[in-house]
Structures are given as C-alpha cells and as structure tokens.
Design a protein around this nucleic acid. Structure first.
Lengths: 359, 359
DNA sequence: TTGTACGCGTTATCAA
DNA sequence: TTGATAACGCGTACAA
C-alpha cells in the first residue's frame, strides 16, 4: 500500500479531520450562514493547517457548470491582442465592460487557419465566447456552437443564434473611395490585409478575389471597387496588394510595390491605418510627397492617425464602442438572455492632410 | 419522473447508444489507436447525430488535472493589458512565447487592492500563473501558492519557490537622476505612478514614502532620491507627485502641479514614459519649453519615446525580453522544472532631446 | 447538519 | 488486439 504519498487535501480530508461531513465544509466556504460561526472557524483553521487551499476550481466548475470566464477567439496568435492598435482598442472596450464582474478573460490563440483550432475551443473553459473577425465558417465557430456556448461575433456575417456587432465596412470603404474620386483621382491602388488565412502576401489575382472568407476584408475591398466602378474606374485595372496582416511593415512593403508600378497610382486606399502608416513610410522611402505625389486614406482612425506625418485622412469606426457593445452582449448572454438583434455601428470619413486633389 | 427533459449528451449517452463502454468512446476521441477505425467512425458519427460535442472540457480537466492555460494576474482591471503601452509590449513578448503551445491565456483582473481578489485566483483555471507587478504580499500571491500552482513573478521581490524576472529599476532611476545632475540641475520634481494601491493622486507625504508595497515604484523612487542625495540634493526638498496609474492624463495633471510650484523645478523625473508624455503636454499647456525651461526624463523607452515632441530622454528597459523570459519560465514550470535563479535584465539611459543643461 | 445522488471524464488493469 | 470494468478526480445541492 502506498497510501502514504502526500496527496493534495480535499474537502473530504478536511471534513474527516474536523469530524463533519463534506457538505458542511463546502458550506463553510460558500454559505457561511448555513453553519455556526464557531464551527466555521474551526473548519477553516483545520483547512489551513492541512494546507487545503479551498475548493478546487475545476471540480467546482464541474458541479456548478460555470467558469466565471469570458472567452475570446482571436484570428491570429495571442500577441495580436497586444500588438494591433485597433484590436487593442476594441479589447479595451470589451475589457472595461467585463471588468468589475469578476470574470476572467480567456484569450484563445488563432493559428494560420484564421482562428483557434477546434480542439483549442473544446478545451477552453468559458461561459460565453466572443469571436473577433474570424473567417466565415471558421471551424472554431462551429466548435463553439457544438458546445452550446453562447457566442458574440464581432465583424462577422450573420450566424444564427449568436449576438453580433458589426460596422458598415463597405459603406466606409465607399466613403473613402468617393472622397478620392471627388478629388479628381483616377489611378488607384488598394492595400488590404489578409483576404484568405493562408499567410500570402503579394498582388491579388482575380481568382483570389472571388471568395474571400474574411468579411471585413471582403466588404472593404468590395466597397472600394464598387465606388470606383461608379466613378468610372474599371475594377480590373486597379492593382490590389494583399498583406498577410495589418502591420506597418507589411503596409510599407505593399505600398513600395504599388508606388513603383507604371503608371504610379496617385491615390492609395488602405484597409487599415497601420497599413496606411506603412504606406506613408514607403512614400518617404521613395522620395514621394504625401499628398503631393500620392494621396493616402486609411481605415479605423486610431489615435495616431491625427498625429502622423502627414495626419491621415481615414474612415473612423467606433472601435471602443464596438468592444463595449460586444462586452454588454456577452454579459447579457451570460445572464441567460436571447441574442438580440445585431447592432450596426456607423462610420464616417475624417478628412486630414494626407489627401489632395489630383494634379 | 422528469427524466425526459433534454439533458446534454455525455460520454455515457453516446456509449450506450453505440452499445460500447464509456471508456471506448473516450478512446475514440483521445486515443484513436486504441480501437478499430470502423468502431471509431461509428462512435463519432453517433456522437454527431446525438449532438455530442466531445468530452466536456471541465470534466476532462478534473480528470487530467490540466487546463492548457497560462494565467496572468494584473495589478488593475483587464483593460490595462490593452491600454498601457509598456505592459502591452511585455505581454506581447509573453504571448509570442506561449503562442504555438496551444495554451490559452487567462487574464485575471486586478481591483483597487492592487491585484486580483483571492477568490478570483481560487476560481481561475490555469496550470501556471504569471504575476505582473503586484504589490508586495498581495493576497493574490498567497492564493496562488496556497493552490500549489507554479508561479512566475515579473517585477516583484523574491518570493520563495517562484521563478522571477526582474529589471534593475533603482539602477535605472539612478542613471536618470545622475544624468540630470550632470547637466547641472538642482531643482527636481519626481512624478511616479501608484506607490500604494489605494487610488490616491496627489503630493506624497513623508509617511506615504515609508513603506511602499509596489516594488517598481519603490525602487525607482529610491533610486531617484539616492542619486539626488549623492549629488547634494536633500531628498526632503524634492517634491513627489503620485499618480494613481501610468496614464498620460495623470502625468499631465501631476506635472501641472509640479510646474506651477515655486520655485519651479528645472527637471522632472518621471517613473514612466507615459507620465513623461503627460509632462511634456503640461509644459506645453503652461507655455514652457522642453528642454529650454524644464528637462524631462522618462522610464521604459516605449517606441513613441523616439518620436515624441521633443524626443524623450528615458531609461530603456527590455520590455519585450522581460515578457519573453517570463513566458519561457512559465513553459518550463509547466513542464515540471524547478524555478531557476532569477534573471536580472539591464537598463540603459537613452539620451534624446528632452534634457538640456540647467541655465 | 448530513447523507447522497450527480456532474463528466480519464486511465490503469483486466478479460476475451 | 480490442474492448470492458471500475476506481478516481472534487465539489455542489437538495432532501431528510
């Protein structure tokens, strides 16, 4: 018999040490009013002396079916959450809403398929899950619904039975493109972040434009091209560069390609401010002036957009609000509410110094 | 009997539907090699048709004693993680190390006591916990060790049995103060973030300086004052403003107070770059020139420090490295290693344009 | 206060 | 090989 190895103490250990039942020890921790103060003290002291740290969280979750945690599914690795400025703002909004409810936030890393692996989802301990901009029909999404967890999606198409927060991305893109058209531009370039979750960076072929799984990329690209078509610019003549993410360096790389083409575009439509900042850098690298030689429009309106050189004309979307709303929805679902109708947030064009009339 | 309510299917449900034992169904999910392919297929199909989403994560964790999650204890609400630039960089480093190991990151919110509540900790489902700059002897820390979870501390004093990453904060502070002394300054002001986790903002009394629970604040403040004393400046004559956090607005507020005193300090020592940026703003507000009228030194060297107006002289600490190291330690502890010796990271002074010789 | 059924799997060990 | 048996993990909650 090796029953003398030092096993972790459990409720039972404490119960038999004190000479009461397991239920009473449980009550000592969870319902102080169910037993006398003196017994409770005796129990807690015995527990301490035995090195018992209180009810095991996992066992407790198993019994209560609650985890006191909000899950968040990311489209990429964990670090995007802390790296991408616009995502951080959304998450700040989400976090400040969830804060004060004593819930943890469980970040679920995505991988190169554009979201967490289904296995990651099935292991994650959360009571409600928020999905941020995953590709349509990501396996992670079905994994959540298979588990029957309430789901809030941000920047995704309608998924039945889930709450949803969305922004008018195609409207925003049209705003940006129309602005440039109104300034007389006719040679455009489009810089977008990932259309497909395969890590590709480079010029976008027609076939690649066909079925784009990321709703945001799809809507922005479509919005740009629609507006340009309406303005008399044939979509097939507009070069599109796909960056694998939304980083500044990626934008710089794409813009360099764009700005060294012949003919050189006089206006760059960028799907995010980060890409646009990279484009500003690329222009500097090439000795081009913005907006003298090329106009640049971003998307998001992160704080830096107002202080960049030059300040960036961009499409403002209410990032913090988006996160707050998602947080509120998550809390509602947590409380058992049915998913309400989707809220659509508005966007607007913020005109700054990075655009000028075409010469 | 109300046994006809639709309970969620479990392993047993599937097992009896297929006519095998629970163990076999479990094997179908976890050890495909333990049963024939055909039986496995049959099991998985039955499971699907019953709406069974696979083994319950909580029950599985209970049985395996593993959660596939890394916990992170924050000194404040969840949103600091996405809001504070220097913290975000640390977390990026941490996250990129943990990424690829299929672990979730569980963010545990702190409250106004300077860390997560012990209850939050005892409920959190994680296999290892990282603590970021909590006050000494925070209840959350004992809660972790009570649970017997491996712990990595960042920016904290020695805690026996835990792995640790630290930076030479007092050395960095001395560097900053010596630099200003060397420039001939003699009237100083110190701007620090929270010394105590009570939300106080304002001038710091002597008693408040006595026992400071935040190691980082304590070491930086001590470092500043030590160096000043060595330079012949009496510590008791140096005004200290405590901001409740590290935000820019908080720095602006403190610097305004500092710069409207008589005599006005000619040099401001700021415990973070964010506070320093606020100080730059306060100087602008008051029509003072930096470094003409007042010199400002920060701490951290976040990216913005090199592009602020004026570029900020600051103490560089390896933020990303700090996070990466913490991540590596967490992974090691996860693998069962003993906590290695603490690693101490070096700091250096980055001299930019925000300091000038005293007139 | 307590007895006890229940929550849901995992993983030896054993038998065919 | 293939699959089954049964002990174990640790609490919660309700009826008595």
């Amino acid at each position: 018999m090796d029953s003398d190895r030092p096993r972790r103490p459990t409720l039972d250990t404490v119960a038999s040490a004190v000479g009461v039942s397991r239920a009473t020890v449980s009550n000592a921790y969870n319902r102080p009013d169910q037993l006398s103060a003196s017994l409770r003290t005796r129990i807690l002291e015995t527990a301490r002396s035995l090195g018992y740290a209180g009810p095991d969280p996992v066992a407790r979750s198993l019994a209560t079916r609650r985890n006191a945690a909000v899950g968040l599914m990311l489209p990429q690795g964990l670090s995007v959450a802390f790296t991408d400025p616009s995502l951080s703002i959304v998450l700040d909004g989400l976090a400040s809403t969830v804060d004060g409810h004593d819930h943890c936030l469980v970040l679920m890393p995505g991988n190169d398929t554009g979201g967490p692996r289904p296995e990651t989802v099935s292991r994650a301990q959360a009571d409600v899950v928020v999905a941020y901009s995953l590709p349509d029909s990501a396996p992670a999404l079905s994994a959540v619904s298979a588990r029957g967890l309430p789901l809030v999606v941000i920047d995704q198409p309608v998924i039945s039975g889930t709450a949803r927060v969305e922004v008018d991305d195609s409207g925003g893109a049209r705003l940006a493109a129309s602005h440039l058209l109104a300034l007389g531009h006719s040679r455009f370039g489009i810089l977008t972040f990932a259309l497909h979750p395969d890590g590709y960076r480079g010029p976008v072929s027609c076939s690649r434009r066909a079925s784009i799984p990321f709703r945001v990329s799809r809507d922005r690209l479509t919005g740009y091209l629609d507006a340009l078509e309406n303005g008399g610019v044939a979509a097939e003549n507009v070069p599109v560069w796909e960056a694998s993410g939304s980083g500044r360096e990626l934008g710089r790389e794409g813009a360099r390609w764009m700005l060294t083409r012949t003919p050189r575009p006089s206006a760059l439509l960028c799907a995010s401010d980060q890409l646009a900042f990279g484009a500003l850098q690329a222009a500097r690298d090439l000795g081009l002036s913005v907006p003298g030689d090329v106009s640049v429009v971003g998307f998001d309106d992160v704080p830096e957009a107002s202080v960049s050189d030059p300040p960036l004309t961009t499409v403002r979307q209410p990032l913090a609000e988006k996160g707050r709303l998602a947080g509120q929805l998550a809390l509602k679902l947590l409380a058992g509410a049915r998913p309400p109708r989707a809220t659509r947030l508005d966007v607007s064009l913020i005109s700054r110094a990075s655009c000028a009339p075409s010469k």
